[in-house]
């Protein structure tokens, strides 16, 4: 069975989720729990780093859909970063770039959050 794991990092107001391995129907609940935990703690500014993600299936993409409304209702967002071409291609195929901001690097994504915070102030 393909392995999948997540880890998280606090970067000030922002939380980064690192994905590793294969995100599919079987492993989707792992990411689901990670998101649920953050939302429970009212952490709504989330960057997901895809650097070490080898594969994502539509069930994996579904996890992003399942939480985005709640997060945006709370003035937060999920920003995506560091995707390999293969992973990006799947996001692109299904039209995600229209709905999600996708960045080359985690730093860019964090920067974008910071800019928005500054504007709000």
């Amino acid at each position: 069975m393909a392995e999948f794991s997540t880890s998280t990092k606090d970067a000030g107001d922002i939380n980064v989720i690192y994905l590793k391995g294969y995100l599919d129907a079987h492993t989707a609940p792992v990411l689901e729990n990670t998101f649920s935990d953050l939302i429970e703690k009212s952490r709504y500014s989330i960057v997901v780093n895809f650097g070490e993600l080898a594969y994502i299936s539509s069930a994996g993409l579904g996890v992003f859909m399942a939480f985005i409304e709640k997060i945006r209702e709370n003035n937060g967002d999920i920003k995506l970063a560091g995707m390999s071409d293969k992973v990006y291609n799947i996001f692109d195929l299904l039209g995600f770039p229209l709905l999600y901001e996708i960045f080359k690097s985690e730093e860019d994504a964090i920067k974008k959050f910071d800019e928005i915070k500054k504007l709000e102030k």
Partner: peptide, 15 residues
Amino acid sequence: AKLLVYSIIGQFLVS
């Protein structure tokens, strides 16, 4: 059911 809906909402961008 959860896997089913995740697959569908991921595939079709349904909220």
